[in-house]
Amino acid sequence: MTTVIVAIVLILVIVAPIWLLGTGLLYASAKLKTPYFLLLLAGLILLPYGGYKALEYRWQMQAVPDALHVTSLSYSNEESWGFGPGGNEAGFRAYPLPDEVAASVKVVDASSFKLLMPLGAPCLVG
């Protein structure tokens, strides 16, 4: 009985949306002029990609305190082996500091970085 339920769920979750998208694209290609169809197709591809990149950017920037005024990522190398609770992830990210912040870091001692961390964040200084 559970095999039947799993098969039905797989059909509803995976096969049905792909089939609906395919038939919808076939219908749209028959009804729309070629430039409009290509615009629709580009939107269907580029909008999810842009959303993914925006979400990825927010995820990478959440590790940096706002007081450092970091707006970009210089380098990122992350790897993931496995998934779920037993998964293993490792990575390195480098963020460029604005000149003003870098100059102020030279003046203050390392203990003042504790004030920049959001509540509950692990502090590696001190």
Rank of each mutant, 00 (worst) to 15 (best):
K53M: 09
G22F: 10
A30D: 12
L26M: 03
L32E: 00
Y75L: 10
M1Y: 09
K31S: 02
G86Q: 14
V13I: 08
S104N: 08
A103N: 05
T23E: 13
I5Y: 05
A42N: 02
F113V: 12
A28T: 09
A67S: 14
K53A: 12
P98E: 00
L73C: 05
I14F: 15
T71S: 12
V125S: 02
L32F: 02
A63C: 03
H69F: 02
C123K: 10
V70C: 02
M117H: 04
L55K: 15
V105Q: 09
S104F: 01
P48T: 08
E78N: 07
L41G: 00
W81L: 10
Q62M: 11
V4M: 10
L38W: 01
L39V: 11
L21R: 07
A54F: 10
K33Q: 03
F83A: 13
P17F: 13
A94P: 00
G22E: 11
F113Q: 06
C123Q: 08
F92R: 15
S74K: 14
I14G: 13
I18R: 07
T34P: 00
A7M: 07
A28P: 01
C123R: 08
A30K: 15
T2R: 13
G120Y: 03
V125I: 03
F83H: 14
Y75H: 13
V70P: 01
I8T: 06
W19K: 12
G51M: 06
L97W: 01
F92C: 03
Y27L: 10
V9P: 02
L12P: 00
V6F: 08
D109K: 13
G50M: 11
V6H: 08
T34C: 00
G50F: 08
A102S: 06
P17A: 04
L116W: 13
K106P: 00
M61K: 04
L115A: 15
L10P: 04
